[in-house]
Write a protein that binds this DNA or RNA. Sequence first.
DNA 1: CTAGGGGTACGC
DNA 2: GCGTACCCCTAG
Length: 377
Amino acid sequence: MVARATQQASTTMPPLAAADAFRVLEFVAGNRRVPHSLLAGLLAALPPVSPHTSPRLRKAIALRALDAALSGSDADGSGEVLRKARDVLADPGVAACFPDHLAVVRDDVAALRRLVDAEWESLPPSELELEADRIAGAGALDTWANADQDTRKKLRRLVGESTAREILGKLGQDPSKAPQVDEAANAPSTSGANEGDRAQQDDEAHLGRGKGEASLAQEDCARHQQEPVERTTDARIPEKPVTSAATKGKEQATSSHVTGQAAPDHNKSHPVTGPKPSLMERKPSAIVYQWDSGDSDSERPPHQRRLPNYERRMRPPPAVPYKTRKKWTEIQERTLIEGVDKYGKGNWKDIKIAYPDVFQDRSTVDMKDKFRNMGRH
DNA sequence: CTAGGGGTACGC
DNA sequence: GCGTACCCCTAG
């Protein structure tokens, strides 16, 4: 995977910003399974990155040096391995990564190896993983709950359609509470998870940035995977799946027949009995399709957990829950009027930029609607 | 980006 | 039912 990433980095991909290069390297370097030769290729292909900005990166590089030193055999009793390891540890930069362990090591290669293993295990998560946690993992509910519509669209592109639905489904079920301990939370981001099995086939595509090829590939992927499943849905579930916004918008061509025939007026056709069922709730009759069964992440120890398998699960899309409703404050209203006075009605973007803290959680559409509301009556 | 029509959700 | 906040879509 890194082979391909490397190749792309040097050929087809546009140059990465330094900050992004850092994220990629910090992520990849801390994956012990990525051979150093590949990392070296990546280093050569990416803009220069200072390792000193990240303890994880620093430590990963130190551990790689130690791995290299320890890779030889010490069966011949020559002490060659130990000598090389000591050379590495003699580097003050390396030594600084393991201040309290140096004494232990002395002349015991086996102990040193165990120590190195343990250090790999306790490597802190990369920024990329932390960010992934925020947008698709344990922190997802918070992040999504506070995101306005535009932000959600971006998030949706980043995590992929089915993960977005999963998150929004949970949001809808439990709009006010913090995330529960379930599959999404089984590996707190602070627990020092290291890569383990991660960073395999799926993840390479996600090293790119949100708006880059990666997300486009995801969407493409989503489309292709969705068609057959939706056909299945159509055949087996009598009730229509509620079309989510994105689905409606992006996939009209392929799926309109599914929604169109069952309920042209989305949201208005409720099952016949009982109190009006909330669309936020998951239907008891909902069926979950997944084709990676037997690969449940929740059974893995935290350090072996993998990033969400984007686009691998399909389920009937829940309705998109509204952003948590917030009353407009007087300050916001006054500021809105002031902004309109100053910038003119319609320049919502300018107004938003002019008062970023006042309108932080208001989209330009919100502002437009609010002004519309204030105007009539 | 914006306007404007029109819809949903929710509290009163 | 009404008002309000939020959302969607489409046209320009």
